[in-house]
């Protein structure tokens, strides 16, 4: 598989957007299940109450990959990791829009052979179009 061509053809363009309404109870449960102790995440009455730092990592778009993206794996891939960049607080009642693109495609060789890493990036903006977070999801597929 020609990774350079794949990358050139499929990275850098937006292929999906999805909206999410942020619920107070979900913010609290996410924070408390993760052992958060900061009142700004665990106390809905706190003046600066906000979603936990990595909260937007729970959102996924309607599509994981662009339409007609070539099939790489013989079987399903696996989740190799996530990177979350925090930019601004997410508040209860916000409507967050996630825009998806393929940020990068690269190859590594592991013990079980070659692995193709597809970095799926979602940029999240609130109803005021302010950037709140960027989440990169590294998916691994084995040809």
């Amino acid at each position: 598989m020609d990774i350079a061509s794949l990358k050139k053809e499929w990275t850098g363009f937006e292929f999906d957007t999805a909206d999410f309404v942020v619920e107070e109870q979900e913010m609290l449960d996410f924070a408390l299940a993760c052992g958060e102790v900061e009142p700004r995440y665990t106390d809905a009455t706190h003046a600066d109450f906000q979603a936990p730092t990595t909260f937007t990592s729970k959102f996924s778009g309607r599509r994981i990959l662009p339409k007609d993206f070539p099939r790489i794996a013989k079987r399903g891939g696996f989740d190799a990791g996530k990177c979350v960049e925090f930019h601004a607080p997410v508040r209860a009642g916000d409507t967050i829009t996630g825009a998806s693109r393929i940020h990068d495609i690269y190859e590594k060789t592991g013990r079980s052979g070659p692995m193709i890493f597809i970095v799926h990036r979602m940029e999240f903006r609130n109803q005021r179009r302010e950037l709140v977070s960027i989440v990169d999801w590294r998916m691994v597929q084995q040809p």
Partner: peptide
Amino acid sequence: PGIMSQGLLVGMIHRWAPGSTVVKIDTVF
């Protein structure tokens, strides 16, 4: 879930450094 593991690490950081802000976290599952 991987994203819960990531959240657990953020929780540890906040217990170590109350009032801090995790501006970026990158985790490998």
